[in-house]
Amino acid sequence: MSERIYLLPLWIRIWHWANALLIITLTVTGVSLHFADPQLPLVEFSLAARIHDIAGIVLVALYVFFVIANIVTGNWWQYVPKPPGVMERCVKQARWYAYGIFRGEPHPYRVSEEANFNAMQAIAYWVMMYVVMPVMLITGLIFLIPELAPDRLFGFDGLLPVAILHYLTGAVIIMFMIAHIYLGTTGKTATSMFKTMFTGWYEQH
């Protein structure tokens, strides 16, 4: 019988799956809008625009909830890579992904209730949640209220830098999502981490 620990409280799991659902919705509609073309039959443009607006506003609300809940529960501490030896642990982790995982070496980091994430995870999640997401959400809100954008910039509409930042951060989130889903298969079994995200119980390697 392998060791199990209760790792993820209900609010984190609900937030995670709501976040996932919204980001997938925003990805599909965002691609439909940005790459709008009669030859590319994705979601109909006006429908995509409406869904993207609504899902975007819900995501902002969910993000605010996430930040507040993190502060209230102290969960924010999980995202802070704990010194000393952060770099060494990152290198060790990267080496495992690049080499050790193929050879069936054990996971270099042991998950505990005190520290859910390995050093690389903590840094990646911190950057995603506290740098990329705010830029994405703020630029999205400016899109909803374009009067907030500068009128003109470098001879172009002032909304252009907002649009480019929104587009690039969106692309980073999509790339993160692909890697994140894939890394979810690197648990004890290919599905054990997905189970953890539903049940909250984590199976040690």
Binding site: L33, H34, F35, A36, D37, F45, G155, F156, D157, L159, L160, A163, I164, Y167
Partner: peptide, 15 residues
Amino acid sequence: LSSSYVIGATRHPLL
């Protein structure tokens, strides 16, 4: 684009 950012129309193909 000089006047308005029109999503779908004012793109940067290289980007």
